[in-house]
Nucleic acid binder design. Structure first.
Lengths: 233, 233
DNA sequence: GCACAAAAATGATAAATATCAACTTTTATC
DNA sequence: GATAAAAGTTGATATTTATCATTTTTGTGC
């Protein structure tokens, strides 16, 4: 017996959980997607996609949260972004080599639709508006990576940690108090530092009254100061 | 009187210097590109494109070499890659906001064609094979950035410098001895470290007999050791 | 060839960051 | 509820890296 009831409808038609770009599809195209999709539930902690594997489908996250990360050297990972509903996940493998170039792991229980890649690509070619929207989404992802490259290589640890927290605030939860869905270790993977350094910085931020962490919740107490730390790097 | 004679033909038809993807165009499409392109020569050191400016054209580098870099914080830049003939340069701005998200500066005298963005986009939509090839190129660029993100954040300086030199060897010159077209400072921007650290690492590499620098030429003496340094990070 | 500017090189020092070795708390499991 | 496992915490220490001040070399224009 599952511990929660999935509200996602069985079919794509009328589904409120699909990535917004799919609203540009015709009824027929959506039917085609529907007929060639697989809908799967993941428990928190489960691997949704593993870097390096064959890309048979593209993904749309219906509910839950997940981390999208590059598996790097000697077991170290770099979290590229947190995936939330109703994000689309494709990646450069669609056109390059039909492989996944990042891994995705559920942070919370998540419901994900897997859409057949060939069907997806054929719709890309037939539907101009859809393809345009897809390219925009793709491009935004790239700009995110540009941004991360700069701030991870040009800022010091306090600035990077501030950025990580501000990312969670600005992009994921949009409120000052949010559940600590990611561990200290994952926070260190998001800000390119050691686990211990991440812990110490969070402690410092708490001491200075910038944040408060309790009961698996993080509250930003001084957003301005956090932005200042991010800014000065 | 120019100090060199440009071998690039006046017109795109029959041009050997255009990015390979353009060979997929029909005669008519190529005529359209030709009628809507601007051909410009740059001297070494000149800025070809400035980050943040309006993207009216996409670029194809006919001759010369250039650096493509992100302008980051407080005047610091991160060189993403060296552009060589006959590379195509588009970028996420094509679909996102019609702006350039990186700067490009000529390292050697360079001849560059600027192709009208709207014409380019319309051909993207009409020519399936061309669009497929463009997407492949686009995707390769992204994988390069993924790769750089990992190695710049997870390797130490010696590994990063080794990677920079191996990049020049493997991707740009494909031979052990090549002209030092980029300064120590630019080498430091390619490997995310301070100018002084770059200088010292090159000295160390020379002392250890891995490389030799003289007369504006760099020669890799021990490729295997360099790869080992890159590997151990 | 000389004057000047830019780039490169150097060593000393300071700052940033990781690592290590404990230890504590929390979470999961039977 | 006992126990193990995982996550979090801490301070000491070592390592990595940047910065600074200065010198040397190289390139450029006259």
């Amino acid at each position: 017996m599952p511990d929660y009831i999935d509200k996602t409808p069985r079919h794509c038609i009328g589904c409120q959980c699909m990535s917004s770009m799919f609203s540009l599809l015709t009824h027929e195209e959506l039917m085609m997607v529907d007929a060639n999709k697989i809908h799967v539930h993941f428990k928190a902690g489960e691997t949704i996609k593993k870097q390096g594997t064959y890309m048979s489908h593209v993904l749309s996250v219906n509910t839950g949260l997940a981390k999208l990360y590059l598996e790097g050297l000697e077991g170290h990972s770099a979290i590229l972004r947190i995936v939330k509903p109703t994000n689309f996940i494709g990646g450069p493998g669609i056109f390059h080599d039909q492989r996944h170039h990042f891994s995705i792991t559920a942070l919370l229980d998540a419901s994900v639709c897997f859409i057949d890649l060939q069907v997806f690509k054929s719709i890309l070619q037939s539907n101009k508006a859809f393809s345009e929207e897809f390219m925009k989404d793709f491009s935004r992802d790239i700009l995110t990576v540009y941004n991360r490259l700069i701030y991870l290589t040009q800022k010091q640890m306090p600035g990077r940690m501030a950025d990580a927290l501000l990312y969670l605030h600005d992009e994921i939860f949009q409120r000052l108090k949010f559940p600590m869905i990611i561990s200290r270790f994952e926070l260190s993977e998001l800000s390119a530092m050691s686990r211990e350094s991440a812990v110490k910085l969070l402690r410092d931020f708490q001491k200075e009254g910038l944040i408060r962490i309790s009961d698996h919740e993080l509250e930003i107490l001084d957003l301005d100061s956090l932005r200042k730390i991010s800014h000065i790097g």
